[in-house]
């Protein structure tokens, strides 16, 4: 897998999963994202790094946030963006996916941003795409959502600086979550001291400890002394497969409230990949409270996606981030 993502010089080629990348590349992504954050504050929010490039948002699953921030990121890099939304049910056959790919290749596209319901689909597309094409995974099944994980890492780093002293708790539907998998991998590569997952056993994957996490079924125990709490979105359909009795009981046991938060570290930050189900994953007081960094996550998403796109296109190599002419490389938290 790692061979597919990284070229012979160790530089990012595709961004498919966190797994297989080393700490240096993850740190480069974060540093590059920091260097772009200045652009947002400029009057003209554009750099010409990807001018003349065609980037395709190829979404086989619906998405608002991810697709929009990818689009914004591409536009800030001056690329031309094509949004293609394909109803997944129309393309359950593999040939169709490959045919779609071939057709887009014929339109001389340079990069695919792919979201698809099948785990491994981004790898599949990267394996079969022509060599000049770059693929960025915007979420594949339950497998991976690496740009989401990196924007979360950027958010954590801006608030907490050093991963090696952190206790991070991820709460909710770990089983079905590509976000959780990517976060766990990124946190562990970046040297986080303790990673916990909190959920009833019906929402924990088999042998979850093999991911290098501690598993808790009790929320208060799971978030005790935590520095970062990441709440995951709960899909309503989980009630149907007898994974949970009701959203009411879920909120009683796993919903984040000010009262339960008192177990956590007093500097704790609360994160959520969105969209939030208020009153299910957390109550509004927490979501809109001072510890919530949910909206910062969204803005950080643009910087991280700009970083990943420009690095994968080879428009930025990591040496440039220390170049004095490069965009502001050492900008700290905003």
């Amino acid at each position: 897998m790692s061979n597919l993502q990284v070229d012979e010089n160790g530089r990012l080629r595709h961004f498919l999963s966190i797994e297989g990348l080393n700490r240096q590349i993850l740190t480069d992504i974060l540093d590059t994202a920091e260097s772009f954050s200045g652009i947002t504050d400029q009057h003209i929010k554009k750099v010409p790094l990807l001018r003349g490039r065609i980037i395709v948002n190829l979404f086989f699953e619906s998405s608002t946030r991810t697709r929009t921030t990818f689009e914004l990121a591409a536009k800030r890099l001056s690329a031309d963006v094509l949004n293609i939304n394909i109803n997944a049910s129309a393309t359950t056959k593999g040939e169709t996916l490959l045919d779609t790919l071939r057709n887009l290749e014929a339109m001389h596209c340079d990069m695919f941003i792919v979201r698809h319901a099948e785990s491994g689909s981004a790898h599949f597309i990267a394996q079969h795409a022509q060599p000049h094409i770059r693929v960025i995974n915007a979420g594949d099944g339950r497998h991976s959502h690496p740009t989401q994980a990196m924007l979360d890492m950027l958010t954590i780093r801006r608030h907490k600086k050093d991963f090696s002293k952190l206790k991070v708790a991820i709460v909710g539907d770990i089983l079905h979550s590509r976000v959780a998998r990517s976060q766990i991998q990124a946190l562990s590569i970046l040297g986080t001291s303790e990673i916990r997952v909190v959920a009833p056993r019906t929402l924990l994957p088999a042998k979850v400890q093999s991911l290098g996490v501690h598993a808790y079924t009790d929320l208060k125990e799971g978030i005790r002394d935590a520095d970062v709490i990441i709440m995951l979105r709960l899909q309503q359909e989980r009630m149907q497969g007898a994974l949970l009795p009701s959203s009411h009981e879920y909120f009683q046991l796993y919903g984040l409230t000010e009262e339960k938060l008192s177990c956590a570290n007093k500097d704790v930050i609360i994160m959520h990949p969105g969209p939030i189900n208020r009153g299910i994953e957390m109550d509004s007081q927490v979501a809109d409270g001072p510890r919530s960094v949910v909206l910062q996550q969204v803005s950080n998403g643009i910087d991280v996606r700009m970083a990943v796109m420009s690095m994968a296109m080879g428009s930025i190599n990591t040496a440039e981030t220390t170049d004095p002419n490069a965009p502001n490389a050492s900008k700290e938290t905003r």
Partner: peptide
């Protein structure tokens, strides 16, 4: 259903 299904996010058969 085991360590690999958990790592790759592929639906498992217990």
């Amino acid at each position: 259903e085991g360590t690999v299904s958990t790592r790759l996010g592929l639906p498992g058969i217990p």
